[in-house]
């Protein structure tokens, strides 16, 4: 029977079991790397470096995980903090503004494939909206959980999701069902 996150965490804490930690990484690597890919605007190498840093921090700070939130929520918060620290260093935390969004979106130059368009559209969103959309709409977190990960008020998360959705709908209007 596969062990759940709580059992694996307990094994790491009690026995310093690297196999249990590897299982945790295997279970969550896709979601964490996916989240970081979106946040880094699909910079795969940077996203994987940050994901690696995330899991090393998780291992180092596992004793501080009290189990009040889901393990995945705690993990996303660490991933987001890793991204934020790196972005601060790179001074890339400033999102793309509305004018830039309009300027960058030219339907003539965008790949006709919907998938590509959606990825493009997501990358065009400002960071705060993109983070909220990726956590809530793609990773399935509740608004409350996303607020915990992003360390912002619940109302702000709701607003960011709403605004992000509106922009995506506008950009992808040609693909939407009539």
């Amino acid at each position: 029977m596969p062990l759940n996150d709580a059992d694996l965490v307990a094994r790491v804490l009690v026995d310093d079991d690297h196999h249990a930690f590897a299982e945790l990484v295997r279970n969550h690597q896709s979601a964490v790397r996916g989240l970081l890919r979106q946040l880094t605007r699909n910079d795969l190498a940077l996203a994987d470096d940050l994901a690696q840093e995330t899991f090393l921090r998780v291992y180092k700070n596992l004793r501080t995980f009290r189990g009040e939130a889901k393990f995945s929520t705690w993990l996303y918060r660490i991933a987001y903090n890793c991204f934020r620290e790196d972005a601060r260093k790179r001074k890339e935390l400033v999102g793309i503004d509305e004018a830039q969004l309009e300027a960058e979106h030219d339907p003539q130059t965008v790949d006709p494939a919907l998938r590509h368009d959606l990825m493009q559209a997501l990358q065009l969103l400002p960071l705060h909206e993109r983070s909220a959309i990726v956590l809530c709409c793609q990773n399935g977190l509740s608004h409350q959980e996303a607020a915990g990960v992003l360390e912002i008020p619940l109302g702000t998360v709701k607003t960011n999701v709403l605004r992000g959705r509106e922009k995506l709908k506008k950009i992808l209007a040609a693909w939407a069902p009539a």
Binding site: G34, L118, I133, C137, Q138, G140, L168, L172
Partner: peptide, 9 residues
Amino acid sequence: LDARLREEM
């Protein structure tokens, strides 16, 4: 849109 976003993960 939500369905497309979920598929794109």
